[in-house]
Write a protein that binds this DNA or RNA. Structure first.
Length: 321
DNA sequence: CTCATTTGACCGAG
DNA sequence: CTCGGTCAAATGAG
C-alpha cells in the first residue's frame, strides 16, 4: 500500500533527523571534551551539566533511531560514527532472536496470581517480553559527582521493582520499569548490574522502548542505604570513597557487526503497530488501548551497546558559557 | 496524604 | 531442583 510507503518515508526522515541530531550533539560534546577550557573546577558544574545534556541528547537520538529501525524492520543497523575521534558504539546481537512475530494478545499468563485480582492487562508473559528489543550499555561510574556517564535515567523516570542476587556476581542486580507503565502502558524496563571485576562499571540492560511521553522530572537521588543498594545508577555514589574520578570520559563506540546480512527482513511487518510514538504529547490514550495495544516490537536482533569509558584524560568540566 | 523503594515470596524456564 | 525475573505488602520519604 501506499500508506505504508509514505510512512516509511516519513520515518526515514525522522530517523535521519535523529541521527544527525545525535551526531551533532556528539560532535559538540567531543569538542567540549577535547578542549579543556582550563577553567577552575569551581564553576564546572555548569559545564558538566551541559555535557550531561549533550550526552543525553545523543543517547536519546540513538535510542529513538533504534526504535525506528526496529519497527520499520530495517536491516542490520549500520551506524558508524566517524566524526573525528568519536568512538564507535558496538551493536551486537545479544540473543538469538527469531524473526517471527506472532503476537497473541490473548494469552495472559500472569506470573503469579495468588491472592490478588487477575493480572490486569498483563498481556506480556515472559515469552513476549523476551522478544522485546534489548541492549546493554556499560557505564562507568563517574566521579562521585554523579556525573555518571550516559543516560542514566535518561530523561525517563524509572521505578525500581526488584533486586536480586545473581549467581556468581558480586553485586545484586536491580530491576527497573518505566514509571508510566500503568498510566501509559509503557513497558520499557532496565536492569542494572554492577560489574564484578570493575566495581566502577555498571552494566545497564534495557528491554523494550519507551512508549510513554517522557517528561516527568528526573527522579531524585535515592536515599540509599550504603550497604544494600549498589545498583544505583544516578545517585551519588554514597559508598564510594573518592578516586577513580579521573577517567570518566566516556567514549562511544558504535559499531555494527554480528548482524546477518539482513535481506529478507523487509517484509516482516504486515502492518504497523498500533500506536507508538515517542516524543508526542502527553495525553495518554483515553480508551484506545484495549484489545492489543502491544506494539509488537517484533524481536529484533538485540543490539548491545557498549559504551566504553576509555578516553584520555580530559577534564569533565570544561567551562563554557 | 501520595508515591517510590525495599524485600521476601512467588512463578516460569531450564 | 536452581536461578532469574517479577509481584506486592510493608516501609519510608516528601
Amino acid at each position: 500500500m501506499e500508506g505504508k510507503k509514505d510512512m516509511l518515508n516519513w520515518e526515514q526522515k525522522t530517523l535521519v533527523s535523529e541521527l544527525i541530531s545525535g551526531l551533532e550533539a556528539a560532535k559538540k560534546l567531543q569538542a567540549r571534551l577535547g578542549e579543556p577550557s582550563s577553567l577552575p573546577p569551581s564553576s564546572s558544574s555548569r559545564a558538566a551539566e551541559m555535557n550531561e545534556i549533550l550526552m543525553k541528547q545523543i543517547l536519546s537520538s540513538y535510542e529513538k533511531s533504534l526504535v525506528m529501525l526496529n519497527r520499520s524492520s530495517a536491516p542490520p543497523v549500520q551506524l558508524i560514527l566517524k566524526a573525528g575521534s568519536i568512538a564507535p558504539v558496538t551493536l551486537i546481537p545479544e540473543s538469538p532472536v527469531s524473526i517471527n512475530g506472532s503476537p497473541r494478545s490473548e494469552d495472559f499468563l500472569d506470573g503469579r496470581g495468588s491472592s490478588n485480582t487477575h493480572r490486569q492487562n498483563h498481556l506480556f508473559n515472559s515469552k513476549k517480553r523476551k522478544m522485546l528489543p534489548k541492549w546493554t550499555e556499560k557505564v562507568r561510574m563517574s566521579p562521585e559527582r554523579g556525573l555518571e556517564g550516559p543516560h542514566q535515567d535518561d530523561v525517563y523516570s524509572w521505578r525500581k521493582y526488584g533486586q536480586k542476587d545473581i549467581l556468581g556476581a558480586k553485586f545484586p542486580r536491580s530491576y527497573y520499569r518505566c514509571t508510566h507503565r500503568s498510566t501509559q502502558n509503557c513497558w520499557a524496563t532496565k536492569q542494572v548490574q554492577r560489574s564484578d571485576s570493575d566495581s566502577t562499571v555498571f552494566e545497564v540492560t534495557y528491554r523494550g522502548t519507551h512508549t510513554c511521553s517522557r517528561a516527568t522530572a528526573a527522579a531524585p537521588p535515592p536515599p540509599a542505604s550504603p550497604e544494600k543498594q549498589d545498583t544505583i545508577t544516578k545517585p551519588p555514589i554514597a559508598q564510594k570513597p573518592n578516586d577513580l574520578l579521573e577517567s570518566l570520559k566516556t567514549s562511544l563506540t558504535v559499531r555494527t557487526e554480528g548482524l546477518d546480512e539482513g535481506e529478507d527482513v523487509f517484509s516482516l511487518f504486515p502492518n504497523t503497530p498500533p500506536f507508538y510514538d515517542y516524543g508526542t504529547p502527553n495525553d495518554y490514550f483515553g480508551g484506545l488501548m484495549e484489545s492489543s495495544p502491544i506494539f509488537d516490537v517484533v524481536d529484533w536482533f538485540n543490539p548491545t551497546v557498549e559504551i566504553n569509558p576509555e578516553f584520555p584524560t580530559f577534564l569533565p568540566d570544561s567551562i563554557y558559557y
